[in-house]
C-alpha cells in the first residue's frame, strides 16, 4: 500500500495583514485518521490558521497542501467539511435543517441539476449522524444554539468528507449537544476521517484528540515537558495543571 500524503500540510506559513502578521512561520501536518487540536488563547491566530488553510484568507509566505495537492490547484473540495464559528441564528429568510444541510452536498453534487438518490441519502445520513432526524423540517432559527451548531456539522458531513475542520465547535453549546457532538466526531474518526479542531477549551472532545498544537501570538509553541505536544491519545490532558493556563484560557473570562 502506498503511503498516503498528509491530509493537510502547512509549511512555513505566514498570513495576516502586511503590517501586522497574524501567523508567523507556522508548520504542521495532519495524517489520515488523526485528530489534531489547535489550541491557544483568543487572538493567538487559530482561526486565521484554519481559514488560510482552506483558502479563505490570502497567504503571505509559505505553502499549504491538501491531500498532497497545493491549495491553489486543489479541486476535490468535497473532501473537506468545514464547520465555521457559529454566527448569529438568523439568516434573512428562514431555512429548514434539511435545506441548510443539503447545501453542504453541493460540493459533491457540483452543478448536477437534480439530486441523485445518493445525494439525498447522504443528506439524510448526515442529519441522522448529529441526532436531528426528527427536526429536519424545523427552521434552523427555532433550534437551540447547540442544535444549530449540529446542523452546521451535518452540513459539513453531507459531502462525505475525509477531513473535518471545526472552528470553535463547542463554544456556547449546551452539555447535551456537546456530548452528541463528541459522539458524531467519534463516529467520523472511526470511519477513517481526519479532524482539525480549533478550540480554547476541549470539554468532552478531549478524549478524541490524538495530538495538539498550541499557538501563541501566531507562532507554534514548541512541544516540551509538561506541554501537550506529540502524545498518545490516552495521555492528552489539555487542562492538566502543568499547562500554562494563559495559553488557552487567557482571554476566556
Amino acid at each position: 500500500m502506498p503511503v498516503s500524503p498528509p491530509v493537510l500540510a502547512v509549511r512555513a506559513l505566514s498570513a495576516g495583514y502586511p503590517d501586522r502578521p497574524v501567523l508567523r512561520d507556522v508548520s504542521l501536518a495532519v495524517a489520515p485518521g488523526e485528530v489534531l487540536a489547535i489550541l491557544g488563547a483568543n487572538g493567538s491566530g487559530k482561526s486565521t490558521l484554519v481559514r488560510a488553510a482552506l483558502g479563505l484568507l490570502p497567504v503571505t509566505t509559505g505553502t499549504i497542501s491538501l491531500f498532497g495537492t497545493a491549495l491553489p490547484r486543489f479541486r476535490q473540495r468535497h473532501r473537506i467539511g468545514y464547520v465555521p464559528q457559529r454566527v448569529g441564528a438568523g439568516s434573512g429568510v428562514p431555512a429548514t435543517v434539511a435545506e441548510v444541510v443539503s447545501s453542504g452536498r453541493l460540493a459533491r453534487r457540483r452543478l448536477r441539476w437534480l439530486p441523485r438518490a445518493t445525494d439525498r441519502a447522504a443528506v439524510a445520513r448526515a442529519i441522522a449522524a448529529v441526532g436531528l432526524a426528527d427536526r429536519r423540517r424545523d427552521l434552523v432559527g427555532t433550534l437551540s444554539g447547540g442544535q444549530q451548531q449540529r446542523t452546521l456539522i451535518a452540513r459539513a458531513l453531507a459531502s462525505e468528507p475525509d477531513l473535518l475542520v471545526l472552528d470553535e465547535p463547542t463554544t456556547g453549546v449546551d452539555a447535551a449537544s456537546q456530548l452528541a457532538f463528541a459522539a458524531t466526531i467519534r463516529g467520523f474518526v472511526a470511519g477513517g476521517g481526519a479532524v482539525v479542531l480549533v478550540a480554547h477549551e476541549l470539554g468532552p472532545l478531549a478524549e478524541l484528540v490524538s495530538r495538539s498544537v498550541v499557538l501563541d501570538h501566531g507562532r507554534v509553541v514548541p512541544p516540551g515537558p509538561g506541554r501537550t505536544g506529540d502524545r498518545a491519545p490516552d495521555h492528552v490532558h489539555p487542562h492538566a495543571p502543568a499547562e500554562p493556563p494563559g495559553i488557552w484560557r487567557g482571554n476566556h473570562r
Binding site: L56, R77, H78, Y82, P84, S103, L106, S159
Partner: peptide, 22 residues
C-alpha cells in the same frame, strides 16, 4: 428557480460556499 440550491448556498453562507468549491 432553476439555480435555487446554488444561489441558496451562496446567499446563506458565502464562505462555506467558497470552501465547497462552488
Amino acid at each position: 428557480l432553476g439555480l435555487r440550491p446554488w444561489l441558496f448556498a451562496v446567499c446563506h453562507d458565502e464562505e462555506y460556499a467558497r470552501v465547497s468549491g462552488l
